[in-house]
Design a protein around this nucleic acid. Structure first.
Lengths: 196, 196
DNA sequence: ACTCTTTATGCAACTTGTTGCACAACACGT
DNA sequence: ACGTGTTGTGCAACAAGTTGCATAAAGAGT
């Protein structure tokens, strides 16, 4: 139930149309809460319906193909403010690569090391991107309260990427070690075949 | 598309019924890929349909209320082995707390520090749980290839919790600092009220 | 015999996220 | 005037995950 709140936040930072929101998500909020333009349009409709936001009045009638800007109404702002301090448990991680490592324990590590190396590269690139943003937006001393909070969020992204780099490197080393040892991958296939 | 693979992995580790799988998910695989019993039953049906697994033959007819054990067929094992090395990009994180920090930048930090402290406690508890498992299952020297891989996955969990502890502590400090400074939370509410 | 709890499987309805496509307005080159 | 690309909104269908409930068997207590 967080997408509507993400949208409210973005709209408060700057009133926008659906497509503008989509673009801003792609290079900012989307780093930790991604959304497609479809989701965004749908949610904008619901938020308007619920009276949390409204479309800025426009002289024209047709809605198709016409830019439609939204702004947050007091009810929306209040809901967002309440959500910020609400009790809500963190959700456990959901990571397919960890699952794949576990699976490799029973069916062999064929192809996994290459995949781990690829992920290492991707995370390195992501980290570089975050660092560039940090340099650009928070290079000098601290700014407003909002700036400090946004910097904090970015630090989470940076620290997370650093965690991944460290762990993936360890995984890569471990897999390489296994690969050069006795050929286990083939041995693993020793489960009982089901009777016909 | 990872749940079926999680189930295949679990079934290869040990053939089980739906409910047994659910329980095992709760205390092992579920740490990084959680699933409800509903999801699991549904997926078991699909996997059986697809010929990846099969129910162990039982003398009785009624299915309702009767335990039904599944085992993996060769097709399922092959699919899992192929998936382990498949190219699949990591998904960006999705964390509501980060979103809430960002939102706090525009609507004020009311109640956030308490929530951050609560999360700190939860992550401390999770870390302790992981460490206990590590002690219990991997306390001595390294075991089989499967053990080493499972240990690696557990390390990811531990490192992640450590990341959260570090970051949440920094966030807590920052929020505390803001709280004692000028009362900003009220000031923030300065957005333009929409014309009626 | 009876209720109550636990174990076990499953349907139905809903929410959230993804994918593919349709369609309107407008700018721009030719 | 006419295609072509870009910007912009949106429907429809699907896939994945969540929530609530129904149902059945088996054991335990009274």
């Amino acid at each position: 139930m967080s997408l509507p709140h993400a949208i409210l936040t973005a709209l408060l930072e700057k009133p926008s149309s659906g497509l503008e929101l989509t673009r801003r998500f792609d290079k900012s909020i989307g780093y930790f809460w991604s959304a497609t333009h479809q989701q965004i349009y749908r949610e904008l409709g619901r938020l308007e319906e619920a009276g949390a936001i409204r479309a800025l009045p426009r002289p024209d009638q047709p809605t198709r193909g016409q830019k439609k800007e939204y702004e947050v109404l007091p009810a929306g702002r209040d809901e967002l403010a309440a959500w910020v301090g609400r009790i809500e448990d963190p959700k456990p991680i959901r990571d397919a690569l960890l699952l794949r490592l576990r699976a490799a324990g029973v069916v062999g590590t064929q192809g996994l090391e290459a995949e781990v190396r690829r992920h290492l590269e991707l995370h390195r690139a992501q980290l570089a991107e975050y660092r560039a943003i940090e340099e650009r937006d928070f290079g000098d001393g601290r700014g407003s309260e909002g700036d400090r909070l946004r910097h904090l969020v970015l630090r989470a992204g940076i620290d997370l990427e650093n965690f991944w780099l460290g762990w993936l490197e360890a995984a890569r080393a471990e897999l390489a070690d296994m690969g050069t040892g006795a050929g286990m991958a083939a041995d693993v296939r020793t489960g009982p075949e089901p009777a016909p």
